[in-house]
Design a protein around this nucleic acid. Structure first.
Lengths: 275, 275
DNA sequence: GAATAAATAGAATATTTGTTCTGTTTTGGA
DNA sequence: TCCAAAACAGAACAAATATTCTATTTATTC
């Protein structure tokens, strides 16, 4: 059969996604589920059957069909062809791309990305060896039972602190983010039985250390995310979680730290729910 | 039907190719044609039918079948599954794995960390294929010349925005972080020629989208860090940098996003210094 | 150079996969 | 609250795709 021309169907992936973003809002529930799923996992489309894809998106195969037709395709096969053609171009794998990017010249942004990707990957893998499971368990035990968690971290650690606050909010874990806004001193907000989650990396920010110290003196438990055993937070009786990020030149990313952060946050959230 | 175990069939692509190189020499003509073709164009196997593949290798479909069986597979489908899984390896179903972990009673914090480490590693590797070097170059060109960079991103994207502000400050790149503190509207701070760096992930925060839109209307260049081609930022003429983070259960980390962020920040800093 | 075994092509069949259809449920408007 | 329209799930059907079978050709051995 001659593949029929279909003037209303998107001819490229870009066009498809553009149309998707225009129309997804107004689509009925199930079709929107399809749209969201395809937007999130476009690479699955090329190598799956309608049935597999529908199951993964948690809809009926027929819903997926209606979705394809809604977009102007004659059916799933026509949509899939688009993804399969795209696939053919994208094949070179991670290792190849990394090499290619590096060869573009050390100065190019793409080469820089390749460097940080490699550093991030290595840092994350290393994380499994630097974080002690016992300490992690203790940290979860402390944070999982505290009535309120104080989060403190400045400079490079501030994004991590923000993220904790976001994650805790999402899981309805009571938390207080000490932002340092207005240079107001918020240390007086500490109450007995509460816990502190302090994040700091070399050169250790004085405010964070002072905050953790005063909390320790008042008998609050302190969990410390930091980068070495020689961190000043080690002197307090804090529960240490060690992350070491590999650097590229003078720059250090936060990829591994965030992996630790989300794992800790989710573990604390889960502990709370299960009592 | 239960997928039958087949002890003689290669279980991985590596094993398949190894066996191929051992045996190809001694194979009859047509089967060898099959072997050579697959060795040369392995990427086509995942998305083709036997008929297509046979035609491309210039053999009969039945020859391709005999070839598959010669290698120990029950048929073409089994061989193809190997190639499809290889492609799929980048997106294991973490939701299912997490459920399994829970059912096994392995909901320990350490197990959770392992999950996020694995998700982070895979996400970072995937970053190499989702970020287009051309777009990255354009983004660096825009941000590297703008007199001021406006950074906007809320909720889950806020840590990323903070980090950009920190990195830019360290490299003395003029930047302005729109924090949303006090719900003050800061959109009037935009001046001609300046650039916007917008970060948003599904569900896209309305404030970020509105900010980027109003910037776009005033003719400012917008660089968008987002998670899919169907993001609302795509509709503006923004320069897109795509990151997709794998999720664990309902949770998604930021490991890959931060690798991209630091690479972009450093590249912009370098561009400024070198003129 | 004939006999035998192996390999092959193409047709026939079985299976999987895509698509359409129908009765039912949900949603939105009067 | 009822009615009409849209959306939906699941089953039935159609198309495509994989697999097997058989007659024929090609290679190998004696």
């Amino acid at each position: 059969m001659v593949p029929e021309l279909n003037e209303s169907a998107p001819a490229t992936l870009e066009e498809l996604f553009r149309r998707l973003s225009e129309r997804a809002e107004t689509m009925p529930k199930r079709l929107r589920q399809c749209a969201d799923f395809i937007a999130q996992y476009p690479d699955r489309v090329a190598v799956s059957t309608v049935a597999e894809l529908a199951a993964a998106a948690e809809v009926q195969p027929s819903a997926m069909m209606r979705f394809c037709q809604e977009l102007g395709f004659t059916g799933f096969s026509q949509l899939q062809r688009l993804f399969r053609e795209e696939y053919a171009r994208n094949w070179p794998d991670y290792a190849t791309r990394l090499t290619n990017l590096r060869e573009l010249g050390a100065e190019s942004p793409a080469a820089m990305l390749a460097e940080f990707v490699e550093a991030g990957r290595a840092s994350i893998e290393k994380l499994m060896t630097t974080v002690s499971p016992e300490m992690l368990e203790r940290a979860v035990a402390v944070l999982g039972t505290a009535p309120l968690i104080h989060i403190v971290g400045f400079r490079r650690a501030f994004p991590v602190a923000c993220y904790f606050d976001y994650a805790f909010e999402k899981m309805r874990v009571p938390s207080f983010l000490h932002t340092g806004v207005g240079k107001l001193n918020t240390a007086h907000a500490l109450r007995e039985g509460e816990a502190v989650l302090a994040i700091t990396f070399a050169p250790y920010s004085a405010e964070t250390v002072a905050f953790a110290e005063s909390a320790g003196k008042e008998g609050l438990s302190v969990v410390a995310i930091t980068d070495s055993l020689s961190s000043p937070l080690q002197r307090l009786e804090a529960i240490p979680l060690l992350v070491s990020e590999l650097d590229v030149g003078a720059f250090r990313a936060l990829s591994a730290t965030f992996a630790l952060a989300i794992a800790l946050a989710v573990a604390v959230g889960a502990r709370r729910e299960n009592g």
